[in-house]
Computed example of a mutant assay.
Amino acid sequence: MRPVPIPDDAVWDGGVRRVIAPPGGDLTHPDIAPVDAIIDRGLGGVARVNILVQLEPGDLETLQQTGHLWLSVLGGIHPFALTAAPPANHAEEA
């Protein structure tokens, strides 16, 4: 899976599109790419960063075999939600 650009029609009311830079702020970092994100307010009004990810070739087969997803977050442990949604929908309240 990899982060992908968010289509304009997928940005919802109350959401603001931002580019999240890798650590150090280098948008040309050779190992960690910047990501397109929508920032809004989640449950309890806490800031929520929403990143769209797309399956790459072989991901679906791997998921069917193992049933496992790994979520890696740089900088520590943070509350998160992983949501499967139709293309035009956004993440549910998390």
Rank of each mutant, 00 (worst) to 15 (best):
A10N: 08
G76W: 07
D26W: 07
F80M: 09
L82Y: 11
V35R: 13
W70K: 08
G76R: 08
A33F: 02
V35K: 10
R48M: 10
I32R: 10
L52D: 09
Q65R: 15
L63E: 01
L71P: 02
N89G: 02
D8Y: 00
P30R: 09
E61I: 06
L55T: 07
H78Y: 08
S72I: 14
I38L: 15
R18H: 12
H29R: 04
V49Y: 13
V4K: 08
G58V: 08
G42D: 05
Q65M: 08
T28D: 14
G14W: 04
H29D: 15
T66R: 07
T83V: 09
A85Y: 00
G75Q: 03
W12D: 12
V16P: 00
R48P: 00
V35T: 13
G45I: 09
I51W: 00
L71I: 14
I38P: 01
T28G: 07
G67F: 02
L74N: 04
G75P: 03
I39C: 01
V53S: 06
D8T: 10
G42Y: 00
P86V: 05
I77C: 05
T62R: 15
T66S: 15
P87S: 09
N89I: 02
G75I: 08
I77E: 14
P5R: 08
G14Q: 03
R41E: 14
G45R: 01
L63M: 13
V16E: 15
P22Q: 04
V19L: 13
L60E: 15
W12K: 15
I51S: 03
A81F: 01
L43N: 07
R41A: 11
L60F: 03
P30W: 06
D36Q: 05
I38G: 01
P3L: 00
E92F: 07
A33V: 06
Q54T: 04
D36G: 08
L63N: 04
D9K: 12
E61L: 09
P3W: 11
M1S: 12
A94R: 14
D26K: 09
V16T: 15
R17P: 12
R2C: 01
A88S: 12
L63S: 06
T62N: 10
P34F: 02
A81D: 04
A37W: 02
A85T: 14
L82K: 03
A47R: 11
I51Q: 05
H29T: 05
L60T: 13
L27Q: 11
G24W: 07
P7T: 09
H29M: 10
V73C: 14
P7E: 12
W12N: 07
P3C: 03
L60R: 15
P86E: 14
A33N: 10
R17A: 05
V46F: 12
A47S: 12
L71D: 02
A91S: 12
P57R: 08
G75C: 06
D36L: 04
Q65C: 01
L52T: 09
A84S: 12
H68K: 13
